[in-house]
Amino acid sequence: MEMLQYALRKFITGIPLIIGVTLISFLLMVYFGPDKTYELVGKNPTPEQIQEVRHQLGYDKPFVTRYLEYMKELVTFDFGYSDSTGERVNSILARTVPISLALIIPGFVLGNLLGIALALIAAYHRGGWWDKIIMGGSVVGMSVSFLIVIIAFQIIFSSNDGLGWFPVRGWNVYGFWDYLRYVTVPTLATVFVALGYNTRFYRAVIVEEMGRDHVRTAKAFGTPPGELLFKHILKNAMIPIITRIMFSIPLVVISGSLLLESYFGIPGVGLVTYDAITTGDQPILKAVVGITAVLFVVVLILNDIFYKLVDPRVSLK
């Protein structure tokens, strides 16, 4: 009950955040975003046709009216139709978000789990060869551009010039084996890049934790390394780790991964969002921005709840 009350209270206090984010984003969309009119009018338009399209797009309405309509759309979760394809925005999101999640989650989970594991090893052997090898590898992962990694992995694992084990592109997923065929190379690319950032961050957190009194005491009492790492260090380092993972979730859920989807020909929400940004498809942008803002507020709440689960000393007040 206490948790539910807390969540509700927190959500209500998050409303100004949602309004702030959506207002600034909408302002940018309206005044600085691409003008869709001139993509819709054809090659030889008349001034009347331009006016008709502007009217249909709602560009001739006052800003306040348009923003209030946006808020209504967010509350009713009805974002209307895409200005480009004419398809319902909700249908587009319902079709593309699961694909993006299925594409990104394996890399996200593995990138974090392996990052934590490597960080533990590196931190435990701080200053030693293991530490140097792992940190050196992390720097390599962080230094190489994601785009280069994608193209290189595509050539190595998928193309005929390489191993040719996996499809170069596409998403003809009709079962588990199809899924593995299509998701493996994007996941490897994601893990390769994410591992560097994750490992460095988690190592820093764990090293800090290792220097604490209770760890030194546990060591002095002869606690075995496994128990020391998992029970005394990792558990206490979970708060920053949870924070990092949780705050990545809204972007993973709604933004997808543009580069992966673009190069591997995967019809996810990242590609749809990118197209919407470059063409000024406001109904899609409004949906993506609005839902991301709401998700951030939800994540903030969940984050606090997870803190309490991990550390009972934390109070939900």
Binding site: I151, Q154, N160, D161, P167, V168, R169, G170, Y263, G265
Partner: peptide, 19 residues
């Protein structure tokens, strides 16, 4: 009909043959 803006990706898929 596959829409592929990246020419190298399109080429790799084409040379693979079955795609």
């Amino acid at each position: 009909i596959h829409f592929i803006k990246q020419s190298l990706s399109r080429w790799n898929s084409f040379t693979k043959g079955d795609e």
